[in-house]
Every structure is written in C-alpha cells, then in structure tokens.
C-alpha cells in the first residue's frame, strides 16, 4: 500500500511536471468553457425547459469529445514513455510488484482526469448564483454527475493504460486507445440514432450505450447496473494491462 501511494504520488506529479498535463487541462477547460457559453446562450434565447441543467450540459456532445480526445492523451505516456526511455527497467528492478505499478498508473491517470473536470463545478456554481431556482443544482445531482464522469473516465483510463502497456511508442498507444474508446462510443451513437437493426442488437447496444448511462447519472439516478458495467470493464482492462506488463517474464 505504501509503495502504491509513493508510485501514485509521483505519477500524478508527473502530469504537472511536464507541459503535457497543462496542455490537456487547458484543452479541457477550453472545451468546457465553450460548451458552457453555448448552453447559456441557448438557454437565454429559447423557451424554458424542464430538464436539470446538468442534463442540458450532456445533451451537447462536448462532454464526449473531451472524453474521447483527452483519455488517449492522458494515458499514452504511462508505460510507453517508460519503455522508450528505459526507466521501465529501473522501475521494475525495485522491489515493487507489477500490480502496484499498474494500479498506481491507473489511479494517477484517473485522478488527473478528474482534476481536469473540476472547473465544471465553477461553471455550475456561476449559473446557480445567477439563477432564481436553486433546486436545479442540488448536491445530489452534482455528486451523481461527477460519479458518472469518474466511472466513464475509469473505463477510458484503463483502456488507455492497456494500450500504453502494449507498445513503446506513445503515438501508437494514443491511436490504439482512441480506437478502443471510439468503438465503444460508436455503439452508443448507433443506439441513440435508432438505426434499424435486429431487436437483440438494439437491446445489447442499449445496455452498453454510454450516452444513455450518462443521461441517468446527470439526472441524479445512480443505476447499479451501469456502475457495474463501468467497474467490470475497468477491471477487465486493468487485468489485461497487468498481463501485458507480466508478459516480459513469459519468454
């Protein structure tokens, strides 16, 4: 546990020791701010709507763009860079276990992802300050929104870490992780657009449709089926990552 914390702390600090971290945070901030002004604009010029403001936020596709773009960038360096520079060797010859390293890299990536989303709180608070109805911004809704972000983020971070553990090239890691992330996302798009297909396919797609999952979270509904979907997906990819890291001992 102690080793895990030491590793996580360093991994997390690395995001802020290099330009990459700040670039990602700025990009996320830019997209957030852009979508925020966009939403405010629409709210001011449209008829009143009866949806929670957090949901309005996710009716735009901005959230998904941020997720799809930021996840590969955050995770691409985790293993690939260490392999490319050789520090993987110095790291793995200290008395740490493979599992500790994988978990530390995952945890720090997720923490960083979460950090990048914190400014959203500011946006919500600004709207809350100027709006007449405070009930639209209940703590419960905000908490479940963030739980949703955390869960989707966990799945995407685990996919990215896995892609990074496969290669020593950051570019390849980013592309593999982007392809994985995009594939899962397109399942939801296919469902949302209601393309005609066999009923069982629709049913299956409905279960993995992240857009619909997120809709529930931003409404303040925490469905354990969705929670399990993200948790099991994350565990699955972390398991694959662990095997990829262990594979150097198989030869």
């Amino acid at each position: 546990m102690r080793t895990f914390l030491i590793l996580t702390r360093r991994e997390y600090a690395t995001y802020f020791a290099s330009l990459t971290g700040y670039v990602i945070v700025s990009a996320v901030l830019f997209l957030l701010g852009f979508s925020f002004t966009d939403i405010l604009d629409r709210l001011n010029h449209q008829d009143p709507i009866d949806l929670p403001v957090t949901e309005v936020f996710y009716q735009t596709w901005y959230f998904w763009y941020v997720l799809l773009l930021a996840a590969p960038l955050i995770t691409m360096r985790s293993f690939a860079l260490e392999k490319a520079t050789g520090t993987f060797e110095t790291l793995m010859t200290t008395p740490v276990s493979d599992l500790q390293v994988v978990l530390a890299k995952f945890t720090s990536a997720l923490l960083f992802f979460f950090t990048a989303w914190l400014p959203l709180l500011g946006c919500i608070l600004v709207v809350r300050h100027y709006s007449s109805d405070q009930s639209a911004f209940g703590g419960g809704i905000i908490a479940s929104t963030y739980l949703g972000i955390l869960l989707v983020g966990a799945l995407y971070m685990s996919m990215g870490i896995f892609a990074s553990a496969l290669t020593r090239s950051q570019i390849i890691a980013a592309m593999v992780s982007f392809a994985l992330g995009m594939a899962i996302f397109l399942f939801s798009a296919r469902y949302v657009y209601g393309i005609e297909q066999a009923p069982w396919v629709t049913h299956w797609l409905g279960n993995v449709s992240m857009v619909d999952h997120m809709k529930e979270f931003v409404r303040g509904t925490v469905d354990t089926r969705y929670v399990m979907f993200y948790l099991s997906g994350t565990v699955f990819f972390l398991f694959l990552t662990l095997k990829a890291v262990e594979s150097r001992r198989w030869k």
Binding site: T14, T85, G86, E89, T90, T93, T94
Partner: peptide, 16 residues
C-alpha cells in the same frame, strides 16, 4: 530486488 542496486545501461532516469 530488495538486496540489489542496479544501474542499467545508459542510466535511464526521470529527466523531469
């Protein structure tokens, strides 16, 4: 690994 100190070839380190 608890008993060794190892410096690999080219001495890789976290340069940041």
């Amino acid at each position: 690994r608890q008993r060794i100190g190892y410096m690999p070839e080219n001495n890789p380190m976290y340069t940041d």
